[in-house]
Computed example of a mutant assay.
Amino acid sequence: MSVQYRDVTLRDGLQLAGKSLPTPRKVELVRELFALGVEHIEVGSMARPDLVPTMADTLDVIAALTPQERERAWIWTATPRHIERAAGAGARNFQYCFSASDSHNRANIGRDTESSLAAMPDAIAAAAAVGGRVQLCIATSFTCPFEGTVPFERLAGILDDPRTDGAVDVVIADTLGQAHPAEVGRRVRLAAERRPGLGIVFHGHDTWGLGVANAAAAVDAGATVLDGALGGLGGCPFAPGASGNTATEDLVFGLRPAWLDPERFGALVRLGEEITTALGEPNRSRARAGARSHAEAFEWVLRD
C-alpha cells in the first residue's frame, strides 16, 4: 500500500515553541515542503491565540496560499465556528479534533468528549457549505495523561458513532507517544475495519523512541497518511509527558516514499535545521544526526 505524508510543523510543531515564525516564512515553508514532495501540510490551528500564541496568524497564512495550495493544506479545528472562520479565509480542509478521554478533552478544548461529538454534524455541515472536507481526528487514541490507558472500547465507540458520518478520514493520534507497534497496529486496524472507505491518518510522537516503528506498524495495519514534524518539533501544551512529533526526516528516511532521493532528503534535513535554529529548539531527528555523520561513502550523508 502506498502511503502519503503530512508535515505538521506549522501546527503541532509550533505549539510548545517559545518563539514563532514570521507569517511570510510560514507561507514560504509550505511551498518548500510541497516542492520537495510532501503531499499534505498542516498549516495552523484555530486554537485561542492567548493560549497558543504561535497560532495567532493562522488565518493570514491560509489567506496567503493559492487555491491549489489550500487543496493540500489542513487546519486544526474543534468547533463548527472554527470551521466557519477558517473557511472565510479560504480553508477547505479541516481536522475536527477532540480527545477520546474526557479529561484531556476538557483540558484541551474545554468540554467533554460527548459535547464535541454532539457538535460534529454541525462542523461537517459548515465544511460542506463551502465544498470542504472534514477529518475525524481522535486525540489520546491510546493513552491519556490524566486517565492512563484509553479503553479499546472507548475508541471503538467513537468510530461507530453515526454523528461522525461525513468525515473523509480518521486520524488516530498517539498524543503522548506512549504507544508501541503492536498496539498501534491493533487500533489502526480497528479504524480501518470500522470505517472502510475512509483514509486513515496516523499521528505519532517519538517520546519513547518508537515513532518510526509505530508509523511502520500503522502502515501495515492500513494507514494511508503519516504525520511528522521537522526536527521532531512539537507536543501538546495540555498533555504532560508528551514530547515532539516523529520527525518528518526520520519518517521519510525510514519508509522511503517514491519522491525521496538523497538530494531531497538533504534539503529536508537542512530545512529542519534552519527551522529549529530559528525557534531556538533542539533538533531531535535521528536521521538528521546520521546525515551529519562522517560516513561519506553512504549516499545519504550530507557533505556541506
Rank of each mutant, 00 (worst) to 15 (best):
V61M: 07
V3R: 07
A64F: 06
F146R: 06
L51Y: 08
E183H: 14
I172A: 06
G228Y: 00
G254M: 00
T149F: 03
L302D: 07
P53K: 12
V269C: 09
L36E: 02
T143P: 00
T113A: 07
G110F: 06
G280L: 13
L51Q: 11
E42P: 12
G241E: 09
W259T: 04
D57R: 07
T248I: 14
A56T: 11
F94Q: 09
H205W: 14
A73F: 03
G272W: 04
M1C: 05
M120G: 12
K19Y: 11
P257G: 14
A63P: 06
G18M: 08
T224H: 10
Q178G: 00
A167V: 10
A87H: 02
Q95M: 14
L210S: 05
D50I: 03
Y5R: 02
H205S: 08
R186D: 15
T23I: 07
G231V: 15
A139P: 10
P53L: 12
P237M: 05
E193V: 00
R6G: 05
G222V: 07
L268T: 10
V3D: 06
A289L: 15
R81Y: 04
Q178A: 05
W208G: 01
D112V: 13
A86K: 00
G266M: 11
A35D: 15
L10C: 10
Q95A: 14
T149W: 05
A267W: 00
A297K: 03
D250V: 11
D261R: 13
L16P: 00
A239G: 01
E274P: 10
D261G: 13
G148M: 10
E183F: 11
V27W: 04
A17R: 13
T66V: 11
E71N: 05
P240G: 06
D165P: 02
M55K: 08
A242F: 03
F253W: 09
T276F: 07
A156T: 09
D304K: 03
I200S: 03
R292L: 15
A239Y: 10
V38L: 10
P145A: 07
A118Y: 12
R133Y: 09
I158N: 11
I275H: 01
I62S: 12
V225G: 00
V168S: 14
V212A: 13
A215R: 07
G110C: 04
R303V: 04
R284I: 03
Q15A: 14
R264S: 10
E114H: 14
L260G: 14
E273R: 15
Y96K: 08
V188P: 02
F152G: 01
G211W: 01
L279M: 11
S243P: 07
R303S: 04
